[in-house]
Design a protein around this nucleic acid. Sequence first.
DNA 1: GTAGTTCTACTCGGATAGTATCTGTCCGAGTGCGCCCGG
DNA 2: CCGGGCGCACTCGGACAGATACTATCCGAGTAGAACTAC
Lengths: 156, 156
Amino acid sequence: MSQGVEWALHTCLNLSWLDAPVPTGTLAAFYELPPAYLNKQLQALARAGILTSTSGPRGGFQLARTPAAISLLDIVAAIEGPEELFQCDQILRKGPGEHAGVDYRQSCAFAQAMRGADLAWRRELAGKTVADVRADVERGHPEAPANTRARIVELR
Amino acid sequence: MSQGVEWALHTCLNLSWLDAPVPTGTLAAFYELPPAYLNKQLQALARAGILTSTSGPRGGFQLARTPAAISLLDIVAAIEGPEELFQCDQILRKGPGEHAGVDYRQSCAFAQAMRGADLAWRRELAGKTVADVRADVERGHPEAPANTRARIVELR
DNA sequence: GTAGTTCTACTCGGATAGTATCTGTCCGAGTGCGCCCGG
DNA sequence: CCGGGCGCACTCGGACAGATACTATCCGAGTAGAACTAC
């Protein structure tokens, strides 16, 4: 699974503590990440409607909706794409007893099982939002929001 | 997710209907797969203890244990490796408020959530065995075992 | 003093290289079977 | 006719290229703000 997912998750959490656009360079410096490559990931989040981007001075990225409306699945899907983990290539098409026109992505027992596991994974991710994670973090580290805000203005 | 997983799943199912070693070439011809590359996947299954391999004439691969003792997770893990889907690189190490020596793979809220989803996925896969899938297939297509056996001897 | 204009610096966005992993292929080591030879 | 030895064809196993996708970088288009000028 792509590296950018972790960057996107933590960056979204940080943005949830801020209410003004933050440029890529500042967000990258926060974790010492390559700025241009982080920018690429944030572009994907913007295309997915999770972030909004504003150009020019005082521009940058900010959350497009409330943290409670952003699930971890939204972020993962924005970076990794909407495809399932297991892609059925229907090799049964080449086997014996094949009925042309059958969609083995639906009828193959293995494809069904893999899809079931995929759905269980997605259900877990869809059930956790950025707001949930933020609450967990603030419970364990009440100073985190202030620290983050301070570091961001320090890096501007 | 790797292509070889689908090949491995279907090949294990086919082998569950047979009780003698089948060479890679025959198994590959069954679905018109590249023989040498399928061989590579079967080697991985053998290393994982799912198949046993015998060299020489009349050799090949066969299941190492009963189909009820082979879960889909076993096969997936043999091909893809034992790593989790999401790898936490602990970028928090580079952030503010960092306490040296903390293992963020354990304490980071995102890592915990991703691990939970991973476990849900694995639980689904571990709960389904090759024997289960075989029963499903035989229910829908009672002729499948005989067809498979016939095709295998035909391709020998 | 104020409004309009220009200029500049800053930001995103997509186009462009480098690298690791997945995909596919090849040849050598080992092995069991069948054949041949001798008794 | 029967037993032993030899040769051979077959199979796995790991070492070797090619293709795809991930990682990383750079430069141009657009924009908001500030500075400057004219009234």
